[in-house]
């Protein structure tokens, strides 16, 4: 070990110690036996999970709500993004390009949670707000990805069709879209997977679904109920991941 590395490592150590001191973390308490017991006690309260039929009925409803929120939000965002992608890829002139890119940047810059807070104020508590929030942010993300995929798609097939007398729209449908839509589908599926996780969190700000149930159960110290909710979240994420994997294998990779 040379001198310079030695200085770097000791500097790093000093920084870590200083950070602990600044945050006033009680390391002694963190490593005490009492903390371990308390932690074990708290974790034990999550078991056994609540398997009551009435509660699971409620849970099933919330799961469907979360699924619907993410699916509708993503689908609407994909449709909007497909429309905005044309100007955002510069196909409709420089002015439309600037407006579309600016709009997409704005939508993307504001995170889903902030959109959800705004939408809860605008549209009231519940899944409407969550769906709108997901749609707005995802439109920003997908619009940009779609536009970049469109820019990178070869133009010769569409050009050749134009030279044989087809209109710009027809040339896009037959010359550009066949190469483009598998990429668009792949991006949409990926965002859907993200959104299903996000949809479970949006409930914390009152936007419906499983998140809202988790927030309520944790706030009321009903850990058994919370465990059931988390189990549902896990199942939902796994289900959507494998569903989109099947779609990807069928349409994107093949």
């Amino acid at each position: 070990m040379n001198r310079r590395q030695l200085i770097a490592i000791s500097g790093l150590l000093v920084a870590v110690i200083a950070a602990f001191a600044y945050l006033q973390l009680n390391l002694a308490e963190l490593s005490s036996a009492r903390t371990a017991t308390l932690l074990a006690d708290y974790l034990a309260r999550f078991w056994p999970i609540n398997l009551g039929a009435a509660y699971w009925h409620q849970l099933g409803h919330a799961t469907l709500e979360t699924l619907a929120m993410s699916a509708v939000g993503t689908l609407a965002a994909a449709l909007l993004a497909a429309v905005i992608a044309l100007p955002a890829a510069g196909k409709l002139g420089p002015l439309a390009y600037l407006i579309a890119r600016g709009g997409l940047n704005l939508l993307r810059a504001i995170p889903e949670l902030v959109w959800a807070l705004l939408m809860v104020l605008a549209a009231g508590l519940g899944p409407n707000a969550g769906t709108l929030a997901l749609m707005l942010h995802t439109t920003g993300v997908l619009g940009r990805l779609f536009a970049e995929a469109l820019e990178n798609t070869p133009t010769t097939p569409a050009q050749a069709l134009r030279h044989s007398g087809s209109s710009a729209t027809q040339a896009f449908l037959y010359g550009t879209l066949p190469n483009l839509w598998p990429q668009w589908l792949a991006y949409s599926l990926y965002r859907w997977e993200n959104n299903i996780r996000m949809a479970s969190v949006l409930g914390f700000v009152g936007a419906g679904g499983l998140g809202q149930m988790l927030y309520v159960s944790l706030s009321l110290f009903q850990e058994a109920n919370a465990a059931s909710v988390m189990l549902c979240m896990l199942a939902l994420v796994v289900a959507v991941d494998s569903f989109s994997r099947v779609l990807r294998l069928r349409w994107v990779i093949a």
Binding site: S164, G175, P182
Partner: peptide, 29 residues
Amino acid sequence: RSRIGLIHQQPPLPPKQRVITAVLAGRLG
């Protein structure tokens, strides 16, 4: 132009398009 047919050395056909659609695209004009 819809009355003019162009045959290219490297046909500019989208790789993911089916042959039937590529052929039918001849009459788009």
